[in-house]
Nucleic acid binder design. Structure first.
Lengths: 406, 406
DNA sequence: CGATATTGTACGCAGAACGAACAATATCGC
DNA sequence: GCGATATTGTTCGTTCTGCGTACAATATCG
């Protein structure tokens, strides 16, 4: 039950039903392909004539294509329909603290090439570097299809409307007009998005087909910081000032360790990779000190995970403590939002069999309802490149999204 | 950008544009009345002919009515349109731990009568008592209009679909089919809802007209428990198992005081009325002990607030500590969801001038962004009867809601 | 080889948006 | 006082499009 916003509603016109049904067909084909026209008519409870007309429109726009006629037990054999994704290309970009990742993929997020280079933190220089690499990449794969846009994922708050990065502490960016800069440099449309939200979008649009993706879920990313992409009622939560999902800074223990944000006892101060590392090193977390120490020791979170698996007690205990605190944080999410699923991304996903029981234990101890305590927690390894897949979705999804109405 | 759910979509038919535009007109009149047909045509960017046709339909259904023709500086004088709410009645019911409140109101939530009686915790007996009182109430006000339904608000988790109260700890209810029982006993349609969500709905539909109600806000209720009604993208968050909004049980301090839920250091264990009272009494919070103690002493939270305002130091400090912890909890909400506003309901709203600075201080200390730290926190006194207004909305709002589509 | 089943297309009807013309009702300039 | 102008609300013909029916195409089965 939604209230109509009387200041910015979208009224219906004569072509509204057509737009809606066209989009439904497109999505049905996308998720249940191959489908014949008759299949669509049955699923939509509509005449086959109507389907013919709408499918012709989609075929004309080359949004879908007709495959081979297929065998049937009786009667005329149907011609199957498929969405056209293979030759519609997207550039996905994932800017991270140390490295920037670049991917050329199709509309389904299947990668054609991937590149990686050291992040240039100056925005103008980064745009130049990106534009040159993108030009090269597209030139090398001209035959694969036409590139329809660029999806740029940054570790920070973004404003979709203006295309600006509002604040990205890891890169030292504040109010940078990245979308227009990159768009001007490449001549391609650019979409920008915050990393955890991009991961959530990737799950929403590219998550396991067949099984149904719920309309309420949360994607928690644990890396240098801790963030969340929240999906409620099938839509992403951006917040009124684009800062929703800063999940790392909910309080866990008000007189806990000092957090890099300046506050105290934030979830992030217990469970971020930096927190785990400083716990392992027996060192207090601090903005300058910890990074310096890590740079000197050359130690990464993957090392600690490896040592833990190899049986080193100190590493094991550092990881386990992180898991316990993460479980407490997830319990808070479950009590507050009751999502159908929680995805956990980041390096900790590679040690899942070790940490999962501890996370679950903390959840069971703190979640009010038994249904909530059983919420599936699903790890997503970095090898799936969720951020880059999310970047691709930024460009591809608007084609398939429901029309905004009323 | 919403993804279409390919399993339960709603396809458009020939009458879909009409349904949508009809509903937009209804809402425009509701929120900006009085409006003429020509006003509507301008606001909707549509021909006046179309408006005539749609308005005739609404007039036929008696959803709106035509008022007097009004003066204009030039030309033909317009006939103004108004929504019909005065003679469409609703029974609102608010079941609480000790008392149950009953209200007969119109579709705008304006009360005609209010009653109050001691809560009967046995569901069957309560239904009998309610049915008898409702029958009497409607008989006494037959001339005021027709009653179109009952809105029932309970302190616990509810399932809209089946009309069952899943769990209401204060009443000791578990899986009780309240909707059907009350509907059978009264012959009226019944809607049930959880208390904080009902308060949020009341704000959404009946909040200050003129000023625009944001599409993202949170209503936090602080009474015996602490709960939240969350509104995101203009829709209420119910959660995948109907348990969203249990905000009282997010962790504040993992080795804090024991909470009645069995866990430790929940927000509720710091800021509920029971927590404040036991802090004032210098007593530890416990499920049986605290209630017993309060029953013996006869002390209520309003007493403590009164003593605090009168200058009693121990009361002042108990209230102030509650305010500080509440601020930390609200900071967590702001970091996680970034709502445009937060409403705070419950007895603490009556001491707002005392607690507001402390709440704000805690928020400023813990919220990441300056925009977030400035989030308006708005108290709503119990005298506004938010739960009962929410109950009325449960029945009235579906008439005005946007049609579900795609 | 006709009966039956199924897919996809063609076509006529009807519902509704759209736009233009028109009737109703007022003020203003002269 | 009267025509020019402005504004509101209605009517009506056009056009788009959903919807149902009929039909063509294509296959299997008895």
């Amino acid at each position: 039950m939604r209230k109509i916003d009387t200041r910015r509603f979208v009224r219906a016109t004569r072509s509204t039903p057509r737009d809606i049904n066209r989009q439904i067909i497109l999505n049905l084909v996308r998720e249940h392909q191959p489908l014949s026209r008759a299949d669509l008519a049955r699923r939509m409870d509509i005449g086959r004539g109507m389907i013919t007309s709408l499918v012709d429109e989609l075929l004309g726009e080359e949004a879908i294509y007709e495959g081979a006629t297929v065998d049937a037990p009786r009667g005329r054999k149907p011609k199957m329909l498929y969405v056209r994704t293979r030759d519609r290309l997207v550039i996905g970009i994932d800017v991270r603290f140390s490295s920037t990742y670049l991917m050329l993929s199709d509309f389904s997020g299947n990668p054609l090439v991937m590149e990686q280079f050291d992040t240039v933190t100056d925005p103008a220089e980064l745009v130049t570097e990106l534009a040159s690499r993108i030009g090269q990449m597209l030139a090398n794969h001209q035959s694969a299809g036409r590139c329809e846009g660029i999806g740029l994922v940054v570790p920070g708050m973004t404003d979709q409307r203006t295309g600006r990065v509002l604040f990205a502490p890891q890169l030292g960016w504040r109010d940078v007009a990245m979308r227009d800069a990159l768009s001007d440099a490449t001549g391609l449309p650019v979409q920008i998005e915050n990393a955890p939200i991009a991961c959530a979008l990737a799950q929403m649009w590219l998550g396991q087909r067949g099984a149904d993706m719920p309309t309420d879920f949360v994607y928690v990313t644990v890396s240098d910081g801790v963030g969340a992409g929240i999906v409620v009622n099938g839509e992403v939560v951006r917040g009124s000032a684009y800062s929703a999902g800063e999940f790392g800074h909910i309080p866990l223990s008000i007189d806990g360790p000092r957090c890099l944000c300046g506050s105290q006892g934030c979830l992030e101060a217990f469970t971020s990779n930096l927190a785990t590392l400083s716990r392992y090193l027996g060192h207090e977390l601090s903005a300058t000190g910890t990074r310096k120490l890590l740079l000197e020791s050359g130690l990464t979170i993957m090392d600690v995970i490896a040592r833990s698996r190899a049986g080193e007690e100190r590493a094991r205990s550092a990881i386990h403590e992180t898991a316990r605190y993460l479980g407490i944080g997830l319990a808070g999410i479950i009590n507050a939002l009751n999502p159908a699923r929680i995805f956990v991304g980041g390096e900790i996903a590679t040690a899942w069999s070790d940490v999962e029981p501890l996370i679950r234990e903390a959840i069971v101890a703190r979640v009010l309802t038994s249904a909530g305590a059983a919420t599936p927690i699903i790890p997503e390894p970095a090898s799936d490149h969720p951020r880059l897949r999310g970047a691709a979705v930024l460009v591809a999804a608007p084609t398939f999204a429901a029309p905004r109405l009323a």
